[in-house]
């Protein structure tokens, strides 16, 4: 096909197509330029790693074998942009051999369970989950036992470790 047969319209169309393509690419770039960093910024907390910290709770003598005790303590933790004294609750259960530390967050949806000493059970007030005094799920919706925190007894003191 001779060169001069290429009429003005065809040149015009390919020029239009080209420019349209460039506009499309630039727009995609603009969207990427704002959405990409935005998502990364919003999702930044996903990269935060929690560290284990040991906390001294109380004298070993304050809990008798077979007893379950609710213990409140607080820790200075970093909560976003500030450091706050955050309160926590755990249940300590002492058997003849050892001490276990049970987290009160129901494994169903995170409500705080209560210990009913008369029934030796942890009961969740939200959806009626029931756990035995070792935190094993017995009935209701909870899918797994209550979480435990590592415990150590040193020089007559009970320590627990928790991730914050």
């Amino acid at each position: 096909m001779p060169k001069d047969n290429l009429n003005q319209d065809n040149i015009e169309i390919s020029r239009r197509k080209m420019m349209g393509l460039v506009v499309g690419v630039i727009n995609l770039g603009l969207i990427g330029a704002i959405v990409g960093p935005m998502v990364g910024f919003a999702a930044a907390p996903l990269g935060n790693k929690r560290k284990s910290r040991w906390v001294e709770l109380m004298d070993e003598s304050r809990i008798k074998p077979g007893e379950v005790k609710e213990v409140n303590y607080s820790l200075l933790v970093v909560d976003g942009y500030h450091e706050v004294e955050q309160k926590f609750t755990v249940f300590l259960r002492r058997s003849e051999e050892d001490v276990i530390c049970i987290d009160p967050a129901c494994t169903h949806l995170g409500c705080r369970v209560d210990y009913h000493a008369d029934q030796h059970k942890f009961i969740c007030p939200c959806h009626g989950g029931v756990f035995d005094d070792e935190g094993t799920n017995k009935s209701g919706p909870p899918p797994k036992p209550l979480e435990r925190h590592p415990v150590k007894v040193e020089a007559g003191k009970i320590w627990i470790s928790r991730e914050v």
């Binding site: 906390v55 001294e56 213990v71 409140n72 200075l76 007030p125």
Partner: peptide, 26 residues
């Protein structure tokens, strides 16, 4: 009616890594 939360009989930890003064206040 929502079940009543059991009245708590929590023990406060003896000491931890928050400043002593605040712990006493707590």
């Amino acid at each position: 009616t929502p079940p009543e939360h059991k009245k708590s009989e929590a023990t406060l930890a003896e000491s931890n890594d928050i400043p002593k003064a605040e712990a006493t206040q707590l």
